[in-house]
Amino acid sequence: MAEKMIEVKNVSMKFRMSDEPINSLKEVFTTAVSGKLKFNEFLALDNISFDLEKGKTLGLIGRNGAGKSTTLKLISGILKPTSGQIITRGNIVPMLELGAGFDLELTGRENIYLNGAILGYSKEYLESKYQEIVDFAEISDFIDMPIRNYSSGMMARLAFSIASVVQPEILIVDEILSVGDAYFKEKSYKRMQELMSGGATVLFVSHDLDKIAEMCDEVVWLERGKVVKIGPAKELCEEYSKKQLESKQ
């Protein structure tokens, strides 16, 4: 049996939400005194379990607010579950947001190292991959310029190049990250496919059912924080899209 890279066991995630966020001392006092300090509990994930074997690609499908992004955040360690357990083996690269931690005042070169460090790359690794990043982003002429002078497309290309230079054991992707103009979109899509088929274990969220069906081995179908079904990608995607159509009519 293949090694399990991700195990999600009976995980629940509860958010405590007050009607208005209480952010200041004054509000705490006034609400506490008037006895209005109530929290609405919102169950984002309700006792979900699944696991993922090495080298497999798993897709998460479901409507907005079904708990897909929360699941990704839990697995990448950004959130801690209210109850239940999550076990991961190997280094995780979460590609949830590109260019997190870019500093506009710094040059492209400096941002490559900063952003790389934030994503958890080592110094040696970044140094060895530096040229590859610059070449892929095609910004070698502007690399020593502060990125506040970059166009949004250049910044997105740089961010994608940094994020996708890794060889992760577990790759977590929220929507297929293809950025820039049509030419670069294709280039980055190819790169994503390379990454996903390159032996990495992939967990992947998209609203594009065709892509999910094409790339995933298995699919977890979430609805309102609960697992509806787990099964082979193609069958489940079909069933899911049928259901969507029905509910529309």
Partner: peptide
């Protein structure tokens, strides 16, 4: 240590950059 050193350099560079 690499991340920390990067963040510290960032603090300095962006503080005095212009």
């Amino acid at each position: 240590k690499f991340l920390i050193s990067q963040l510290v350099t960032r603090d300095f560079k962006s503080k005095y950059k212009r």
